[in-house]
Every structure is written in structure tokens, then in C-alpha cells.
């Protein structure tokens, strides 16, 4: 088993978060994604007003994601040691920003139909 397969990756993720939490998080991610696609199809357009609020939430998602990763790994900004670390930091921030934006947009769409 020297090579990475999806099975290996899932096994590692299951060990990392615990089987229950991992599949719960995967489930939540799938539900939010499906809900997002659902509201896009239902409304047949992107609401710029909702999108604006979603965009405004992005910095919070980015910061929260970075602080979360630093918190669980007992590390901080001073530990950035090279270019690859900056890329990882940006990737974490981007993931948090996009994730929260999708969540905020979807939540608005589901909770209030009117623009």
C-alpha cells in the first residue's frame, strides 16, 4: 500500500476526525452544496444582493478558518517558514472564505425568498 488511493485517503480522514465526525462533516458539505445548487436552479439567477452579503462574509470565513487551523495545531503566524507555508495559509483562508460565502448565500436563499 505504498501508493495513495481514495480508500487510503478516506481511511486517514476517518482516523483524523473519527469515523462519525468525518462522515457527518462530509454529509454537511454535501447538503450545503446540494442546497446551493438547488437554490440556484430554483431561482434561475444569482441574487446580487444575497451575493453581496455572502461576499462580505468571506473575510470572516477566511480568518476563522486560519485561526481554527492554527488553534488545533498549536501554531501561529510566526511559524510561516517558506513560500509553501504562505500557499497553505492562503489555501486555508480561501477555503474558509468560499465555504462561508456559499453557506451565507444558501442560507439567505432558503430563509427569505424575496430579494
Amino acid at each position: 500500500m505504498k501508493h495513495l488511493t481514495l480508500e487510503t485517503l478516506i481511511a486517514v480522514w476517518e482516523e483524523m476526525f473519527g469515523r462519525g465526525l468525518f462522515w457527518l462533516m462530509t454529509g454537511v458539505a454535501v447538503v450545503v452544496t446540494v442546497a446551493y445548487v438547488f437554490v440556484l436552479l430554483r431561482d434561475r439567477h444569482m441574487s446580487m444582493r444575497k451575493f453581496l452579503l455572502a461576499q462580505l462574509s468571506m473575510p470572516f470565513g477566511a480568518i476563522a478558518a486560519v485561526l481554527f487551523v492554527q488553534g488545533i495545531t498549536s501554531s501561529g503566524f510566526r511559524d510561516i517558514g517558506g513560500p509553501v507555508d504562505v500557499l497553505v495559509l492562503l489555501a486555508v483562508a480561501a477555503a474558509g472564505a468560499i465555504g462561508l460565502a456559499i453557506l451565507v448565500y444558501t442560507a439567505q436563499s432558503l430563509l427569505r425568498k424575496q430579494d
Partner: peptide, 16 residues
């Protein structure tokens, strides 16, 4: 190189 990413791996991915 002393890197944060290597620390992240040690801290989170190694045990799983």
C-alpha cells in the same frame, strides 16, 4: 527547511 506545513503534518496527519 523549517516549515509550518511539516509541523501541520506531524500534528494532524501522522497519527491518522
Amino acid at each position: 527547511e523549517e516549515l509550518w506545513i511539516s509541523w501541520l503534518m506531524k500534528e494532524t496527519a501522522l497519527k491518522p
